[in-house]
């Protein structure tokens, strides 16, 4: 009997099993080949995001000295000390809000030693392109007039993220968007994303309030 017309359940199951096995083998092969390049790519984008955080000059690898914490609102927060010649200069703080519109929103902030926010970046998000993503992306706007000019240097503007710059997260009380009675602007149609970003920045600051001492002690030694 030809395979194509076969209706025996065992034969059909076996065929499907073999198909799945072959595809698993192919995927395992691709995974092995691409594992290292993927790690390298992620490390590279990590270093590039540090460059954009408006931090003072530094020569350590902040992510290798990172410490993980759970913030008061149960966000996962990672504090990375930024040093030059072993002296603490600033903090890079990564905070993951679980409440984005499409999963987690990861925000990385630069803080100076006085806990003032230097810059806010969204480093990982899956928000709706063209709507929630507008809250998260920093991009220079192109027009027909500057199409062929090189993009300006420095941190591209984003009105929602820029409003945190220069502020200090209060130890008590919370940050909220205007819709919830707070003071921060939000994007209409992307309130959930705006809330998630605001909460992530707030939790980053609060965690830094609590745990900053641990890093300062290292300085004295």
């Amino acid at each position: 009997m030809k395979l194509k017309e076969n209706e025996n359940v065992l034969v059909l199951g076996g065929f499907l099993g073999i198909t799945a096995l072959i595809s698993a083998l192919v995927l395992a092969l691709v995974f092995t080949v691409t594992r290292e390049p993927i790690e390298r790519m992620q490390k590279k984008s990590l270093q590039e995001s540090f460059k954009l955080l408006s931090l003072p000059d530094f020569d350590n690898l902040p992510h290798q000295e990172a410490k993980s914490y759970i913030s008061p609102e149960k966000f996962k927060v990672i504090i990375m000390p930024v040093r030059k010649n072993g002296v603490l200069k600033a903090f890079a703080v990564r905070s993951i809000s679980p409440d984005g519109y499409a999963g987690e929103v990861e925000v990385t902030c630069g803080f100076d030693l006085q806990k003032k926010i230097l810059a806010v970046l969204v480093t990982r998000q899956q928000e709706t392109p063209g709507l929630g993503s507008n809250v998260c992306e920093r991009k220079f706007r192109k027009t027909l007039f500057n199409l062929f000019k090189a993009a300006p240097e420095g941190l591209p503007p984003n009105p929602i993220l820029d409003q945190f710059h220069g502020l200090t997260v209060p130890e008590n009380g919370s940050w909220q968007v205007k819709r919830d009675g707070g003071t921060f602007d939000f994007v209409t149609g992307a309130t959930i994303t705006s809330r998630a970003v605001t909460a992530a920045v707030e939790q980053a600051g609060k965690t830094l309030h609590i745990h900053r001492g641990e890093f300062m002690e290292n300085v004295k030694k």
Binding site: L3, K4, E5, N6, E7, V11, L12, F15, L16, T19, A20, S23, V26, L27, V30, F31, V33, T34, P37, I38, M41
Partner: peptide, 26 residues
Amino acid sequence: PKKIRIPVYIVVIATFVSAIDMLMKA
């Protein structure tokens, strides 16, 4: 086999998509 062609096709397609996803990531 005719009876299971759709599941087999889906497995093939999903394999391609996952492989392309990983290759692009890398």
